[in-house]
Design a binder for these strands. Structure first.
Lengths: 135, 135
DNA sequence: CCGTATCCTATAGGATACTG
DNA sequence: CAGTATCCTATAGGATACGG
């Protein structure tokens, strides 16, 4: 993890990383993992996604070469989405991240509980000092 | 990448993943990589970050047990941030993600260029069909 | 069926001023 | 120095309606 002096916040890697880890991207890759699916089939798997959000997500993934979009000329129209080889190659790093969250979730939740406990104690202390007891 | 039927969008892992890949988190870990730093020292490394954003980011990382916050009682006050062992353990997965973006950036940029070219062609075609030539 | 367009609200995030 | 508080704007994201 080498550092760089200039505008590392907007470097292409960070922008790309954002697009890959954005809310629905990973879930789309999970949904398409064992074969191409049509728009509404993907949508059914991503409980809670809106049509707008899913469309935007799929467009972004398509633009970055992670999925393909194939229009099947029928009536009514059908559109099939599939993972590209490039998309396949990003699944491994994503899995590594996901595995870390699973393995360390307990530790993280302990840390959160401890933090929140400290916050309550601090608030109490502040109230005691200011002595602002209304009633 | 197994699928699950219910609300996978808000599962604890995804929420945590969001917090780890959020705009400044990874950059903070990079800044603190070779030793503890004080607030403004971190800030100087993250070109473009506002005090508010950095404070929020550091609090979130602290709450998740990724960094520690140590107040040095002096005048003026000093606060030192450091990576925890838990924080160290997440650097490897993050590095794996980052390496992927670096290695595949060229491919992604080609895909984007191709996508944008198609978009222009489509727009031209649409204009030709509608025949809406004003002037 | 697969979107786009529009409207509306909620939240993120910058700028600035102030405090222990 | 290291924040907190306030204000303001920009963007994301939901709901709904409509079009190819």
């Amino acid at each position: 993890m080498a550092r760089q002096p200039e505008d590392i916040a907007n470097c292409p890697q960070r922008v790309l990383l954002d697009q890959l880890t954005e809310k629905w991207s990973m879930l789309v890759l999970m949904a398409l993992d064992d074969g191409p699916l049509r728009f509404n089939a993907v949508k059914r798997q991503l409980v809670g996604v809106t049509q707008k959000a899913l469309t935007q997500c799929l467009r972004r993934l398509e633009r970055n070469g992670i999925v393909t979009r194939r229009v099947v000329p029928a009536s009514p129209i059908a559109v099939e989405y599939a993972i590209t080889p490039l998309g396949r190659s990003v699944q491994q790093p994503l899995k590594t991240m996901y595995r870390w969250t699973t393995q360390h979730l307990a530790e993280v939740e302990q840390a959160r509980a401890a933090f929140d406990r400290r916050a309550v104690v601090d608030a109490d202390a502040a109230r005691a000092v200011s002595g602002a007891a209304f009633g």
